[in-house]
Design a protein around this nucleic acid. Structure first.
Lengths: 120, 120
DNA sequence: TTTGTACATGCACTTGACGGAATATAAGTT
DNA sequence: AACTTATATTCCGTCAAGTGCATGTACAAA
């Protein structure tokens, strides 16, 4: 994967937010949609975009597709993602997303018993 | 400066090559053109692009404009640039550019006596 | 005052990425 | 077989970003 492609991927706030979330652990599409409040088509396109680049990997778990960050050879991606929370006042969005993640995952576990994706 | 803007800047090979060169020290426009074999208009546009973002600073030295990387608050840019030489086989371009830099600068010092820009 | 050097800017054109709407698919449920 | 759920894909319009070409500017030298 070319480094330019990586930067093209990081150019988009939506994709950065997705990667920021996946950095904490894998998530299925429906949870990503719920946390980021994005419609299904848009989310799916972004995920395919990153999957084609080799940045993401998918696993089928029951009826869900669970996405996670693939292991590139380089620490470059991780280095960049680790900056997201501290890089400026306008970027508290990324911290908020992590909070939303906890909220959503908790609700799903508490609410619908055994209704969540097994591995996210 | 928003982080997205930084990544948009890094998306372009030409700009990456310029930044890679400037990381070793300031350069004037004509040297950048010579090292990267880019025409003047294109080079100037890229430099303005990065200057407007606050990534570059200019200084007038005699008849030349000497560009250097500005001090952003974050180590993010430097971290990314430091990976350029080691990030893949297709990226030996960046190492070659540094070699070309040495060659060009040496020729200018040896050839035209006092014909180079003072500070690059 | 014209010429030359070093650099910047404006304009028209093309290409590529994002959004929206509609549709497709795959697998389980009734 | 029809339906639902979860996710992917295709078509299309729009708009930003890169390119080429021509031109502008600033300043020193002849």
């Amino acid at each position: 994967m070319e480094i330019i492609q990586l930067y093209k991927c990081l150019c988009d706030v939506q994709r950065l937010r997705i990667l920021n979330l996946l950095r904490e652990g894998p998530l299925c599409v429906c949870h990503l949609m719920e946390i980021l409040e994005v419609d299904q088509v848009k989310m799916s396109k972004q995920l395919q975009y990153m999957k084609k680049l080799g940045l993401l990997e998918v696993e089928k778990v029951a009826q869900w597709r669970v996405y996670r960050i693939a292991d590139l050879g380089t620490p470059l991606l991780d280095q960049n993602l680790s900056c997201l929370q501290e890089c400026g006042p306008e970027d508290l969005r990324f911290a908020e997303d992590l909070a939303a993640r906890k909220r959503v995952m908790k609700d799903n576990v508490a609410g619908v018993v055994a209704g969540g994706c097994g591995s996210c």
